[in-house]
Amino acid sequence: MENIETNENYHFSFKFKNSLPWLIPVFLIVFWQVACNLSWVNETLLPSPIDVVTNGIKLFKKGELQENMSISLYRATAGLLIGGGLGFILGFINGVSRRARLLFDSTIQMLRNIPHLALIPLIILWLGIGESAKISLVALGCLFPMYINTYHGITSVDPKLIEMGKSYELSKKDLFIKVIFPGALPTILMGVRYALGVMWTTLIVAETISASSGIGYMSTNAEQFMDMKTIVLCILIYALLGKLSDFIAKNLEDIFLEWRAIERRNTDASETSGDK
């Protein structure tokens, strides 16, 4: 009997720990609802969470919400794949080849310092206002974090491990697959995580330029008519999508970098045992 009890205790603490990060958001939403109900805030300026959710359900039934969301998701993903892929390739080439580094790096560093949103007028004039303009803008935003992290990851792989690989006669391909890439992976995945963040922020802006679909459009369109419920709904959707992509990125790290988690656990363990 005792055994079961401790087990339950364990479960309880486990769940409590898991729910801790959600405590503040939930509290804020409850507080917000109460504030609306008690008319502490003007409902035309800040609608209550329940209003926002019912509005969301209404838009979902009309099909508007899911259509705009999937279009946004398409633009975001396409931009991320193109920009992130390009950034990875450039970072990789510059990371392994000194000559390429001399040729490209300072140019890329110069371009990197231009805020990519400042290029909107150029992009409109060159690519118009169709899908390609929006996707290019997202791609541009994702390119630099991926480039910098890939480049930095590859150049900072322990040279001693590379020397080991070379002296153990690893082929160029094996040296990359077994030593350089896994060594750079933690930094590259950090780049992915950062690119995901930039992806959403850029997309919001991209969708305000003459879009006729997407979450960003929904929100600017609502803004024009002071439709606060939809504006708040769009903001919440962005928050959730941002959280979701961060969650995926974090889990990708856990899956691909299992060895690091084990390493960390072991150093922690040896440190605590050392204290005793």
């Binding site: 259509e67 969301m69 999937s70 279009i71 398409y74 396409a78 990708l252 856990d254 899956i255």
Partner: peptide, 24 residues
Amino acid sequence: LKKSFIAILLLFWCGIAVYGWHLT
């Protein structure tokens, strides 16, 4: 379990994105 959960999530993501592509 975590691996398959993330894989399903990614598939779902891509599926929606492809649907979005269709809409455009």
